[in-house]
Design a protein around this nucleic acid. Structure first.
Length: 443
RNA sequence: GCCGAUUUAGCUUAGCUGGUGGAGCGUGGGACUGUUAAUCCCAAGGUCGAGGGUUCGAGCCCCUCAAUCGGCGCCA
């Protein structure tokens, strides 16, 4: 039964003139009472298969003729090079077997009309039928690009001898803020779904020194935007003996490595969804400029934007700031009052913290957030008290400093956001198979 | 949480100043020996999101509710 031949290889010319057995699903079917053209799909591509009544016999021909879109079939025949076939190759079928039929009462619901509507964003119908929409070429392409992005992240860190390290998803307290936590009943107690791997990573930092993860994070934000999910994939890293600038160098190198990998592995996929490859090449090759928060505020004020020093930069302001950028930019040195206690205060000016955000161009916004941690015991206690946060839940975090604290830092990267940006998706939902947002958890 | 919009056949939609709903795709039947989103003919398929109101009469006007979509705040 094992599948031996793949449509992508056939279209690449690997089996010209020889007999192959193709296993796949019917993408489209047309023809007459004596000849049928089946466009067969598998995970590697599509190919036209010519089924003639004379060649396969009456019974098999009728079965193929009556087969609907997405029926699974096994077609055996000779690979023919023919200009008339899309892709330049076709299968001249000698025997045909329907494996899983599709009944006429329940035809495949993702029709041309449903797909046309998807160009301008996803419809409710396609979201309801996400499990079937996954089979379409657009979703398949997105999932392949996504896979390459995940692979690039693992490669980047492993090549640099980082250790992959895992934190629990059930947590007792908040990493930041309290309102965006998902509450979960836990044997009569309440626990929460994690928002970040960071605090647990800092505990392991003195053991592993260079560590990373790719894991889901959960945020109970009622955000209704093209950049938000309630469950998203978070690539995070933590490094000992490192400052803000060192961490930024990793962030920049990682994102450039992702762009480069996607370009190498998914060129055809990107072309198939009309992505401009020159843009990706620029993201892979160019340095990412660094701008201080103060400069950004001055720039915005110069543009007549109503903003005061100390305010966090919301998306509307980010967008104005990034509209002239043609590569990602770092924003650094935010005011202390705009950031949580674990960001280290700048020793050169205590109004600021040593942190950074990486903003993607083309309106995709923040893809990385990170910085240097408050690493001395004295400083962390002062910052916790200053912000009025109770010490008790953070005792394990404070202990990291009590026993041989060292300068360290890290960042978190929104993997889905990066996939969305690099693929040029209209919405972050397009790049994850079963998106979760504040209003949808099904299918 | 706030603002805006949408809801007509399985899907995508048209619908004139209110006068008993049209189409394309899909499905079924028929024709066709090479099609390219095949084409051509025929058919079935709608309590117009739910409830109330105005009116002789509501898909269309008014009110309430619901679902969905888009944007903002928040963030990756």
């Amino acid at each position: 039964m094992a599948k031996e031949f793949w449509i992508g290889d056939v279209q690449a010319g690997d089996h010209d003139g020889v007999e192959v057995e193709l296993m796949g699903w019917i993408k489209r079917t047309r023809g007459s009472n004596k000849i049928r053209f089946i466009v067969l799909r598998d995970s590697t591509g599509t190919i036209q298969c010519v089924v003639k009544k004379d060649a396969v016999g009456e019974e098999a021909f009728e079965e193929i003729k009556n087969s609907l879109i997405e029926a699974s079939v096994i077609l055996k025949g000779i690979v023919n090079v023919d200009e008339r076939a899309p892709g330049g190759h076709e299968l001249v079928v000698s025997s045909a077997e329907v494996v899983g039929a599709v009944r006429p009462e329940t035809p495949f619901p993702i029709t041309q009309s449903a797909m046309q509507a998807a160009d301008g964003g996803e419809t409710e119908f396609l979201l309801d039928n996400r499990h079937l929409y996954l089979r379409t070429s657009r979703m398949t392409t997105m999932l392949k690009i996504r896979s390459s992005v995940f692979g690039a992240i693992h490669s980047y860190f492993r090549d640099l001898k980082f250790t992959e390290y895992h934190a629990p998803n059930f947590v007792a307290g908040a990493v930041e803020g309290g309102s965006t936590l998902f509450e979960v009943p836990y044997f009569g107690k309440k626990v929460y779904l994690t928002q970040s791997w960071q605090l647990y990573a800092e505990a392991a930092m003195p053991a592993l020194e260079r560590l990373y993860t790719i894991a889901p994070s959960f945020r109970a934000e009622k955000s209704r935007t093209r950049r938000h999910l309630t469950e998203f994939w978070h690539a995070e890293m933590e490094v000992a003996w490192a400052g803000n600038s060192d961490i930024m160098e990793h962030g920049e190198a990682l994102v450039r490595n992702i762009a480069k990998t996607v370009l190498e592995e998914r060129e055809d996929d990107l072309k198939s969804i009309d992505r401009d490859l020159d843009l990706i090449a620029r993201y892979a090759d160019s340095p990412y400029p660094r701008i201080r928060y103060d400069e950004a505020v001055e720039t915005l004020q110069g543009l007549g934007v109503d903003i005061e020093w100390g305010q966090d930069l919301d998306y509307s302001k980010e967008k104005i700031l990034t509209q002239d950028f043609d590569v990602p930019h770092f924003l650094t040195h935010y005011p202390k009052i705009a950031k949580p206690f674990y960001h280290r205060v700048d020793p050169e000016d205590d109004k600021y913290v040593l942190c950074h955000d990486l903003l993607a161009p083309e309106g995709y916004g923040e893809i990385v957030g990170g910085g240097e941690r408050t690493w001395s015991e004295q400083e962390i206690l002062a910052r916790i008290d200053e912000e009025g946060v109770p010490r008790e839940p953070y005792q394990f975090y404070i202990d990291t400093r009590t026993y041989g604290g060292v300068p360290h830092g890290g960042f978190g990267l929104g993997v889905d956001r990066v996939v969305s940006w690099l693929s040029g998706a209209d919405h972050i939902r397009e790049v994850i198979p079963f998106p979760r947002d504040s209003r949808r958890v099904t299918p």
